[in-house]
Design a protein around this nucleic acid. Sequence first.
DNA 1: GTCTATAGGTGGATAGAC
DNA 2: GTCTATCCACCTATAGAC
Lengths: 193, 193
Amino acid sequence: MAAQGSSNTAQRILDIAERLVQTQGFNGFSYADIAAELNTTKASLHYHFPTKAVLGTELVARYSRNFQTALEAIEKKESDPLQRLRDYVALYARVLEKDRMCLCGMLASDYSTLPKPMREEVRRFFDGNEAWLARLLEEGRKAHKLRFNGAAGEEARALIGAFEGAMLIARSYDDPSRFESAANRVLARLGEG
Amino acid sequence: MAAQGSSNTAQRILDIAERLVQTQGFNGFSYADIAAELNTTKASLHYHFPTKAVLGTELVARYSRNFQTALEAIEKKESDPLQRLRDYVALYARVLEKDRMCLCGMLASDYSTLPKPMREEVRRFFDGNEAWLARLLEEGRKAHKLRFNGAAGEEARALIGAFEGAMLIARSYDDPSRFESAANRVLARLGEG
DNA sequence: GTCTATAGGTGGATAGAC
DNA sequence: GTCTATCCACCTATAGAC
């Protein structure tokens, strides 16, 4: 009854594809790579995901859903705004510890070569992050727990850029502490006062 | 007498390759793409750059040299630290206006698939930027023109990450103003007081 | 659902004529 | 320095048996 893309095998395919995209980019992996790791054939993969574009689109959609779920989990803890920000940063740090880049940060660099449906999903990811962060920032400022100037939405965008960029470069040095250091500077600044 | 890589043709090849890498990544372009644009053949390109790894390495080396030259030009103007920072940001903005990503930011996302000599050149680029920025930051702080906490080197790293990340995401929205906005927030914070 | 086999295309790279 | 021709590996994708 379930759609093909939601079977167990499909999920295992997505798991492997996800790691490959996060480490090598969308143009840096192939069906053959996945097939080898799953001990199956390329043709079998095409049964579950007829084209690479479909696979990629479902990949980002799933990643976005999981990320949103993680954001909701942070909110449920009802901790203070600065702690929620720390939890948000920890989501990035956990990805980096697995020697991966944020899926959508990686896809942002592949953006010009992506099929249109993937582009839209990538944007949706950033839009969702921005909206969540902006709400948190505004709430934190009103409660005098977070300090920043100007529009919360713009600060949110700047934060996302800073985190994605810090992640990107930390990977080039195989040194997660570079991300931690940059993120902590940001948190310290926002928590001042 | 000059090495092959420094002929006029070689430079034109590098110009085209540079744009292609900045827009599509190192794995997103081919000798065929360059040949088509130059109205020549793939075989001819291999005369100038025997392998793609060699081409890529010379590409990053040239980019780094040009960037360092631009940094020295900023220093020669002997403007105040905040203005020099603005000039630094303008280097990024000019790349983005051409719908390109910073070459080394793009290569950072391809990092795991790059030949070793390219990796080293990419790191050298970031190291050079960090050193230049750290000197500027420290000088600006001593002159009470720039305000930030902690080590200048760490602040420099955070800035580079923030700029690269803002660039990366701005490209996904085809909206350079996203970069400008994020960069201006950073500059405003550093210039406070 | 998975397999074998294969199509049709493109990748980087080389040999050898001019 | 540039060309034609070619190699071989790899790519995404499909047909059809099981």
